[in-house]
Amino acid sequence: MTKTPLQFRHNGRDVAVFVDGGINLLVALRELIGDMTPKFGCGQGGCGACSVLIDGEVHLSCLTLAETVNGRSIETLDGLKDGPNLHPLQRAFMEQFAAQCGYCTPGMLMAAKALLDRNPSPTRAEVIEAISGNICRCTGYEPIINAVLTAATSGRARA
């Protein structure tokens, strides 16, 4: 099968891979780049565990054809912290106990980051809207919402 060359930025680094036609971005990231932070939950856009940012916007990597991200910038949870320093969202998730099994957490954090990047002072309703595509089956939504609001507050305090 012919493979397609593909180049994009992955958490600030240029990467180049050859992909089979038709594979999705989730598989490309996990199996070709080796970034295991986006998770497979359903493969049909239902759960949000595979959420990544493409040029700053949150997308479901399981429904994104890998070939469509050529030349674009992808952010995943793997790039969220700054060296050894946790991102305010990560610190807030820890402090607010906003993870139980942890499987939805990468997607939740990326959806929350997309929100705070475009809206540093969201309302509670805006936070709920921003994570509405991400399912937490341990049903820890309240701590997650509180964590995002806490991160927004601490982010503003630092700025």
Binding site: T37, Q90, G102
Partner: peptide, 14 residues
């Protein structure tokens, strides 16, 4: 939780 840091950094290994 002892696994929380792994969860928020995506390094918990499933």
């Amino acid at each position: 939780r002892q696994d929380m840091l792994g969860h928020v950094t995506g390094t918990s290994t499933y």
